[in-house]
Structure formats: structure tokens, C-alpha cells
């Protein structure tokens, strides 16, 4: 019957409480084993405190050809960044 174990994407939250971050992939027969494998494969150097696993085929990605329309418009919104505003030094830290 030899069918290959499905592929999983692995996300790990490190020691410092930041978001889960994609670290790589692996094969496992189901989600529970994917978590165990992720522990063994991706936390050998004390990298993580929490693991998420997602079947690779469950991920919907933005289309590369849309890169322009999706991401370039935000370039123009410079006022979203704090450096856009000049605050006089006398006002102090803000």
C-alpha cells in the first residue's frame, strides 16, 4: 500500500513569548505524531516552548503575481510610521 506520510508545516514559539514562527516541514501520519516529530526534529537545541502543526495542503498562500497590488499600496501610507511626524525636542520622549 506504501503511500507517503503527508507533509506538515511546523510553527514554533520560542522562549521569549514571540509569535509562533515557521521553522520548516516534516512528514507524519497524523497531527499528533507531527507534534512529536516536530519536538524531536526542530527543538533539539532548546528552541521552543510551543508547537503548532498544520497540514501543508491546508495552507492558502497569496499569489506571487499579486505581489504588486497586494503589498505596494502600503508603501504610500508613510503617515502610518512614527517617523513621519516631527515632534519638537522640547516636548520630550513620545
Amino acid at each position: 500500500m506504501s503511500s507517503e506520510w503527508p507533509l506538515w508545516e511546523i510553527f514554533i514559539r520560542g522562549q521569549h513569548g514571540l509569535n509562533h514562527r515557521h521553522v520548516g516541514s516534516l512528514h507524519a501520519p497524523d497531527a499528533e505524531m507531527a507534534v512529536k516529530h516536530a519536538r524531536d526534529v526542530y527543538t533539539r537545541r532548546n528552541e521552543g516552548v510551543s508547537i503548532w502543526v498544520v497540514p501543508s495542503n491546508a495552507i492558502t498562500a497569496s499569489s506571487p503575481s499579486d505581489k504588486g497590488p497586494l503589498f505596494e499600496p502600503s508603501n504610500a501610507k508613510v503617515y502610518r510610521h512614527p517617523t513621519f511626524f516631527d515632534i519638537p525636542e522640547d516636548v520630550g520622549k513620545m
Partner: peptide, 11 residues
Amino acid sequence: AWFRDGLMAHA
């Protein structure tokens, strides 16, 4: 092979 297949079957 039997090991990989066994785990797939269980899943």
C-alpha cells in the same frame, strides 16, 4: 516499509 504503512493505517 511495514512500520511506515502500519502508522498510516492506524491514522
